[in-house]
Design a binder for these strands. Structure first.
Length: 432
RNA sequence: GGAUGGGUGGCCGAGUGGUUUAAGGCAGCGGUCUUGAAAACCGCCGUGGGUUCACGCCCACCGGGGGUUCGAAUCCCUCCCCAUCCGCCA
């Protein structure tokens, strides 16, 4: 969400930002509405001021028993009433209209974000690890994760489909444990080494929380919602719950940055993804993810973004998974982001790099929607915080990456060294 | 599911129709005092809008909306939210 005052002060910069997002200039229309709104406020307040002073005079007139003066004044106030009513209605309508228009505008990319229409314009910034050194490289044709999992008898899409339909899976035995092990491994690093505070958060939230992180009002079709009297949205990511920890709060600058992490299920309708990634666990209606959220001051958010991205990369490195880091171009970034790094892990079964994490800095875009502020040390007043979120990592996709990269000729899967303590010392997953 | 209480500035909290400004306190900021600090004292201390060269002045906002009234934080209606008790339940 943008500050209309900022648009008013620098409309050219605003329109230039929209253009980078592929949008037409909007500042003229927004400013016209804002001017109309402020003109109405001015007229309204003149009438209000007169009504207030007249009302006070009525009080005095009545006190001094001057009934003639009192009734003259009362007639005047009565005449003002219609004018006030109309003005108030108009003001409310205009304010709501302006808010509606602003609420559906995406955040503006930072200057160093590469220009581009779609993912083909994304830019690789670094690459780590060599796929050729992985066990899967010794195979003629590395298998895809679902072939490996099904052959092990530990991954069952049919059973899931019988109860829930497409885009669900049942993991069993050591694969189910692997999912848990990965999550615990990630949480232990983020909390123990990187200073994130582990949270257990609501998975069902109200409209206002979804509005705060900007899933609403524009992306309702991507979400699941409960039925009944009390309707809740199912979170598509713990970013929603963790970022909303700061909503309507005023935080002392000394307490910043706040760093939160949570391992949570995520629910996505995948409404626009029909036909994409239909096989396997890549794209599910339900998956688990370890999420990272930071709340910072404006001057620290860019450094925090690099730090957060590094935290996510660290997980991939420790697991020995080859990956690359790319910066998303203006046309491929999410709605709330100013800048986004995606981490893509190597999947030998697909012979491709696939997204496993997305780390975004949002500036004050979400904070303004949530009313999340901080009190500058030694200063007056409050300012909006900056918010960041990133996956650290998507657990389901990490499981896929482990299966595909560590698969063996005999169909078993080696367990990366650092995960073994979380697997009770197990070195290899074989057919039970 | 049944019953009740409540929503006022960063926080606590007074305010049941006006003539005096949402009192007072806490926290915060600045100052006086002090070797330094504490204490004490003084001052400042919500958001948005309008106006002004500026100092300032004016208006709105007491959960949202509607209504009554010359005038509403205060009375009425409605919606949202929070809490407590009872019942049921992991």
């Amino acid at each position: 969400m943008f500050d209309i005052r900022a648009i008013r002060e620098n409309p050219a910069a605003f329109d230039a930002g929209l253009k980078r997002r592929g949008l037409e200039p909007l500042s003229a229309g927004l400013i016209a509405k804002d001017e109309e709104l402020r003109a109405i406020k001015t007229r309204l307040q003149e009438a209000q001021a007169r009504r207030n002073s007249a009302s006070k005079e009525i009080g005095k007139a009545k006190a001094s028993k001057d009934e003639a003066l009192a009734s003259t004044l009362m007639a005047e106030v009565a005449a003002l009433k219609d004018q006030l009513q109309a003005g108030e209605d108009k003001q409310r309508d205009l304010e709501a209209a302006l808010e509606r228009e602003l609420a559906v505008l995406p955040n503006i990319p930072l200057a160093d974000v590469p220009e581009g229409k779609d993912e083909t314009a994304n830019v690789e910034v670094r690459r780590w690890g060599d796929p050729k050194t992985m066990p899967a490289a010794s195979l003629n044709k590395p298998k895809q994760h679902f072939e490996i999992g099904e052959a092990l008898g530990l991954m069952d899409f049919e059973a899931a489909a019988r109860m829930s339909g497409a885009r669900f899976v049942v993991l069993k035995g050591q694969l189910a444990r692997l999912e848990r092990a990965l999550a615990m491994f990630m949480l232990d690093i983020h909390t123990g080494e990187f200073g994130y505070t582990e949270c257990q958060v609501p998975l069902l939230v109200r409209d206002q929380a979804m509005y705060g992180t900007a899933q609403l009002p524009k992306f309702e079709e991507d979400l699941f919602q409960t039925t009944g009297e009390n309707r809740f949205w199912l979170i598509p990511t713990a970013e929603v719950s963790l970022t909303n920890l700061a909503r309507e709060q005023i935080i002392d600058e000394a307490a910043l940055p706040l760093r939160y992490t949570a391992w949570s299920p995520c629910f996505r309708s995948e409404a626009g993804a029909a036909g994409r990634d239909t096989r396997g666990m890549i794209r599910q209606h339900q998956f688990s993810k370890v999420e990272l959220v930071s709340i910072t001051t404006p001057d620290k958010s860019l450094a925090e973004h690099e730090r957060m991205t590094n935290c996510a990369e660290t997980i991939l490195k420790r697991l020995g998974l080859p990956h690359r880091t790319i910066v998303l171009c203006t046309g491929d970034m999410g709605f709330s982001a100013q800048k986004t790094y995606d981490l893509e892990v190597w999947l030998p079964g697909q012979d491709a790099y696939r997204e496993i994490s997305s780390c975004s800095v949002c500036g004050d875009f979400q904070a303004r929607r949530m009313g999340a502020r901080f009190r500058p040390a030694g200063g007056k007043g409050t300012e909006f915080v900056h918010t960041l979120n990133g996956s650290g990592l998507a657990v389901g996709r990490t499981l896929i990456a482990v299966l595909e990269n560590y698969q063996q000729v005999d169909g078993s899967v080696l367990i990366p060294e650092p995960l073994r303590p979380y697997m009770g010392g197990l070195e290899r997953i074989s057919k039970p």
